[in-house]
Design a protein around this nucleic acid. Sequence first.
DNA 1: ACCACGCCATCACAATTTCCGAAGACGCGA
DNA 2: TCGCGTCTTCGGAAATTGTGATGGCGTGGT
Lengths: 300, 300
Amino acid sequence: MELYHLRTFVAVAEEKHLTRAAERLFTSQPAISAHIKALEETLGVTLFDRTPKGMRLTPVGEELLPRARQALAAASAVMQHAKGLQDELIGSVRIGLNTDARFLRLTALQAGLAEHYPRLEVAMLTGSTGTNLPAVRVGKLDAAFVTGEIDDPSMSVCFLCDEPLVIGAPVSLRDQIISTDVADLARLPWVYTSPDCSHFAAMRALFDAHCCEPTRTLIANQEDALVEMIRAGVGLGIVRAGVFSNDDHAYELPVALPSVPLQFVYLRKRENDPLIRAVMHQLCAVWGIAPPADAAREAG
Amino acid sequence: MELYHLRTFVAVAEEKHLTRAAERLFTSQPAISAHIKALEETLGVTLFDRTPKGMRLTPVGEELLPRARQALAAASAVMQHAKGLQDELIGSVRIGLNTDARFLRLTALQAGLAEHYPRLEVAMLTGSTGTNLPAVRVGKLDAAFVTGEIDDPSMSVCFLCDEPLVIGAPVSLRDQIISTDVADLARLPWVYTSPDCSHFAAMRALFDAHCCEPTRTLIANQEDALVEMIRAGVGLGIVRAGVFSNDDHAYELPVALPSVPLQFVYLRKRENDPLIRAVMHQLCAVWGIAPPADAAREAG
DNA sequence: ACCACGCCATCACAATTTCCGAAGACGCGA
DNA sequence: TCGCGTCTTCGGAAATTGTGATGGCGTGGT
């Protein structure tokens, strides 16, 4: 028994004629006849009395008709519900962060996602470039903010902005900072970032260029931990410009540093995933950049 | 969308593998794959995430699954209900009577029908042979008791018993009944049956044989009316033997009359109608006669 | 690092089902 | 009695569905 049997059953019951039911269902009358016959055989009951005037429901058919309607309605409900879910994103998306929410414009992103996909649960998970990348690779994250050049063909990378770096210094060490010469600074205590952080590369470049090695004091792989260490006076460190504005405990040294790109990454194979598309769409709107074109052509 | 799509959907959702779902549904894995693909296309949503380990429901699929189950259950309810109605007779059957209920053994017939077909509504409609036959012909009755020979090829006739006839006379006329000679009796007042009643034929035969004509007094086409007329002293009449046993107002004259057959008739073209079959089966049980064999061979 | 395994998607072709148009059977009404 | 409208049946065509083989892909064991 299939749905078309029931559809035909109901149509014939309502039209009381095979011919009219056939017209209503845009098919031929023999087809309708066969449907009814097959249905009657599988059900083992007679649904209609055949009269010269048409088809009249038997008491059994009368009794089965509302159930058939119910089944059709239930099937229709599936389709209806699916239509409602058509372009709806439901479930959750996990986005890895690598720095503070304001700089990443998270409230705007969250607002855009919430507005367009009210049933999408958005999880913003703090981390760092170093932890975000593998998390995205293994699927623990759907996408993530990272800094620095990403050289991974399995990743799609979306450039957001250049992030200027500065050397941050605690106020408590101001007395010991007599010059902004890198070699001098290297002798002071430093808070290291972890090697998988892009700031680490910037730091290496800086000291290598001046042929010196900083004093290692502490390694922090979370940016806010790093910032707190600097503010607490543990040592100098490389941070994004602006984190110490109007800060009583730390300030920026006027040393030119290269900037690193802030980027948004996700698995390339998911670039056509509606979830990713939606997040990217909102993200690009927030950052004022063009969303990635329909990337089907480079999917192979 | 058809039911098999939903069946496959549910099976895959439960088995989490196309392969296993295919085994469960006794078909091949590509077929299952096609079902899911087609369903996803008609619904416009993605139901499963394809993983190397199998199929995992998406949140959308998760949401649609119970509705799909509901639709399948509704369809299954149709079949279930139909199975229950399989050999059940529902609706009503109209049986025409031509004499009193006890003689027709109606309580036994009613009991048998009620026991085997509790949902069958049985209507016993009083009438006479003359009114019952056309009523059966035009479908106002499904079957009827009649007396006398029936010569109608469109009718199936089932002989039940021979019905002995007697001349009934009112006690109030006893004084005027000096002999049982028919010619003498003919001079007394008579209550006629209508010409379409088999008793009428018996009456005609009786008087024709004795070359006399009875005095017509009143015509009654209902047997109980006839009986009442006789008891009220209106005149003599031909009735079934036994109706006046222990009756204070009328009695039977010892005049030999031919008997007429009591029969049960229905439209021959309905002889395979389950309703007719059921009634005949019960009727024959009550009357202790063999039910008509599967009459398919003489249906043409 | 490699290979074997299990998973699903796709393909071409076969089997089945469904569908159609025509013809037949039947009862009704003119 | 004939015409009309109904449903049923029939043969062949069309569409759908199912099958087995093949390939891509990721995983886990060696």
